[in-house]
Structures are given as C-alpha cells and as structure tokens.
Amino acid sequence: MTMNHEETSRQAQSAWGARFLEYRLMWRALRRDRLAVISLAIILVFVLAAVFAPSLAPYPDQALGKANLSEKLDPPSATHLLGTDDLGRDVLSRILYGSRPSLSIGIFVVGLAMIIGTPLGAIAGYAGGWLDQAIMRITDIFLSFPALLLAIAISAALGASFFNAMLSITLTWWPWYTRLARAQAVSLKEQTFIEASRAIGVPGFTIIRRHIIPNVLTPALVQATMDIGSAVLMGSALSFVGLGVQLPRADWGNMLNVARLYFSDGPWFAIFPGLAILLIAMCFNLLGDGVRDVLDPQSRRTG
C-alpha cells in the first residue's frame, strides 16, 4: 500500500480530531436508519424513566418495598396499571424503579469492560512479544469459561449484591474488548503513518494514545452498543438466581424470580418485567445494528 506524503503527514497528526468529525457525519447517516432511531428513542424513554422514577411512579413507597397485602396479586386495573405483585405492590412502580439497576448494570459493565479491555488490547497488539503473549493468554483463559457461569461463580464467591454482580459480569466481559482491540492494533501497526511516527521518535505510549486507540474505538463502540443489551440480559439472569439486587429492592430479574412462583395466579407479574428486559435488549441490538452499518463500512454489506 502506497501513500503520498500529504496523506501520511495528515494521518500522523492526532487522529482524535478526525474521529470527532467522522462521528458527526456518522450521526447524520444514522438518523436515516428508522429502526435505529426508534430504538434510540425508546432507550432514551427508558433512561428518563429510570432517572425520574420517583416522580413517575404512582406508588413510590411500594416500589421501595412497602407491602400492600390487601391488594395482593390484583390484575391490571385503573389504580394499578400493570397489576400488583405477591405483596400487593404496584408492578408499574416497581418496574420503573427496577429500570435503575437493570439499565445501569448494562451500561456500567460495558463501559468498564471497554475502558479496561481496549487499552489492554491496544498495548498487547502494538507491543507484541512477551507482553502480547502474556496478556492474550490471560484473556484466553478468561474466555474459556462460559460467561454466565463465571459471573455466577464470582458473584457467589464475593457475596450477593448489585455491586458484586456488576463486578463479576465486567470480569467476564473485558476479554472480548481486549481481543478486538488487539486485532485492530496489530493491523494498524503495519501502516505507514505509524512507521513514520516511530521513525521521528514518537514514544510508544504516545503512539498508542494518539493513533491506535482512536482507530480501535470505532469497532469497540459498535460492539459496545450491541453488548449493552446482552449485559442487561446477563444482569437480569444473575438477579433471577438471587445473586444481584436483593429484595425488597426492585429489579427486573428478581421480580421474575418471585413471579415464577405465582404466575398461575398472577401472570402479569411475570409478563411485564420480562417484557421490559426484552424491549431494552431489542432496542440495543437494533441500535447496534444501525451503528455498525454506519460506522463500520466493511461490514456494511453484510447483515
């Protein structure tokens, strides 16, 4: 691959500036994808619902745990739009409050995994040699565990809590970003503008920071958008087995755990929290598809 001098020096300048411009253009292209836009809108609705839950929930104290036994397992009605649960608490309010841990676990896990994994992978790919091997071996070993199993095991070992659940899921997730970043870094390393920078004497870390990471960020972001949905799913799975948010605090997963025992008497209790999870996961998946089509031209032809 040959490049003229102009292009080489242009690329040797910070890639960050170029990235931001690119993202603005991509955003405009993304707006054209209706499915992605609708998904984004729904996600924003959920986020707002989570943030403003105390104001939106019709029965905030019930959402926090106060029981209302007289109205146990009532079907959806005018007073309780989505019915009540096994302790008479308003399902709608608990779903609104439950969106907080459910959404935040997805966002934080993916965010942390990306923050930890991407630089690690970039370093491994760029440095090569024993550092590369060491990092990749550790990554491989983490990857050889089934994620859910590992998360459950770590979570159980640390003790059941929201924070521990988040930690354990993050620990299963970071290796994917490391692998992704490393692959990118390895191919970038060969490019002329990197060699030029090295020839001038730019130190390794600066190269990584200024050139490699911005270029690695794009596929990582594509992956991250789709991953948030999966992270929410895994978080709810952990809550479902009792290892996440503990009752009486509401969480979509632990609501389903209880609902399981009562679903013949109160199916709505089981349906709605699961529906919420499905909706969020779907929206992130569709948004991720749209983002991938826009940001990653190579894969544009597929999917």
Binding site: A237, F240, L256, A270, G274, L278, A281, M282, N285
Partner: peptide, 22 residues
C-alpha cells in the same frame, strides 16, 4: 432473530409454561 436474541430465556420459559401448561 432479534426477538430471540434479546429475550431473557427464563422469561421465555415462563411464558411457554403459561401458554402450554396453564
């Protein structure tokens, strides 16, 4: 495909039970 990939499996299990059993 998107629905299947986004669905919490334990929820689907519950729904199937609801439909086919109850």
């Amino acid at each position: 495909a998107v629905i299947n990939v986004s669905m919490p499996v334990f929820w689907l299990a519950l729904l199937l039970q609801l439909l086919f059993v109850r």
